[in-house]
Structures are given as C-alpha cells and as structure tokens.
C-alpha cells in the first residue's frame, strides 16, 4: 500500500521533471518510477505503522506550518542583516551555547524541530542526542527565545498529532 503511494508521488515528480507527454516518455516514466520504487522505497516513511488518516492529517497541517516557518526565516534574515550592517562594534553579538530538552518522541519530529531551529533567527542546532539538543545562539535575546517552546508545540501538532 505504501509502495503505491510512493510510486504515485515519484510519478508526480517525474511529470514535473519531464514535461513530455507522448506515450514513449510516459511509459519510460512508469518504468523508471517502478525501478526506483523497487530498489529504494524503504527510504521514505520509516514508521509504517501509522494509518493513512494520520498521514493525511500531517499533510493538511504542513502548509500552515511552512508559511509560519517562512515568516520566521524572513525575520531571521532581517536580524542577520541588521547585525551585519551595524556600523562599528556589533553590540548585540553575544554567542552562547544553550541546551534544551524536547518532548518530541519521533525521529522525524526531532529532525523537523532541529531544522526549523537552524532556520529561525539566531540559532543553529549543533547536535541531537536522544531528547537533548545542543544549540548555538548568537545573542542573549535569541538564547532566551530558544527556550520558549512555541515552535516545539507547533512541530508536535503537525507531526505527532497530539496537541501538547
């Protein structure tokens, strides 16, 4: 069942890549997607015990999260821009290492949280170990911000279904 979904997904990507709609190229696409599904479909969806309803729910909630993340990325760039173009000594710069604990259970949830932390203002994930994360933060303000768990709750709502 998952293989069928992966096949359709890959075929959609093939259509975007190819741009040719004659029978010859479409059948080549079918064959290629079949080969890839056969040899490497195990890379997608590591946790296959989830039902399709849950997956669909994740997919529905993903766009809202992405737009929020996009806004955060733009904020982070404004932050970098402000810092980089400060004349003279950069007062705001005060790097420190922060360690936080997450309540996320799944690996993919942790992955999404780590990458979101890397993309949001002033913080980069250095390492994940179990449920602890080591984060480099660029200023006092962002170090405070990373301890706030807004983002974690958002990620949990998208990828783990639960509210908290």
């Amino acid at each position: 069942m998952y293989r069928l979904v992966i096949f359709l997904l890959l075929f959609g990507i093939w259509i975007i890549f190819s741009g040719q709609f004659d029978y010859f190229h479409l059948s080549l696409g079918l064959i290629s997607c079949g080969i890839i599904t056969a040899i490497s479909s195990s890379f997608f969806f590591s946790n296959r015990s989830k039902s399709f309803g849950t997956r669909l729910g994740e997919l529905m909630r993903l766009p809202g999260y992405s737009f929020w993340l996009l806004w955060q990325i733009i904020l982070s760039n404004v932050h970098i821009l402000k810092m980089a173009l400060t004349p003279g000594e950069i007062k705001e710069l005060d790097p420190s290492l922060v360690r936080i604990k997450t309540n996320l259970k799944t690996d993919f949830g942790k992955y999404a949280l780590a990458n979101s932390i890397t993309l949001t203002p002033g913080t980069i994930t250095i390492e994940i170990d179990g449920d602890e994360m080591l984060i480099h933060s660029i200023s006092k303000h962002t170090a405070k911000g990373v301890k706030d768990d807004t983002m974690e709750r958002k990620v949990a709502r998208v990828f783990e279904g639960g509210g908290q």
């Binding site: 990325i73 733009i74 982070s76 760039n77 710069l93 890397t118 203002p121 980069i124 480099h136 660029i138």
Partner: peptide, 13 residues
C-alpha cells in the same frame, strides 16, 4: 560559529 549563522541563513532566504 557566528559566520555560520550569516552563511546558512542569508544564503537560504
């Protein structure tokens, strides 16, 4: 480390 902030974020956005 701080250069990494500038590189990683400025680049992506």
């Amino acid at each position: 480390y701080t250069r990494m902030h500038a590189a990683g974020k400025g680049d992506t956005c």
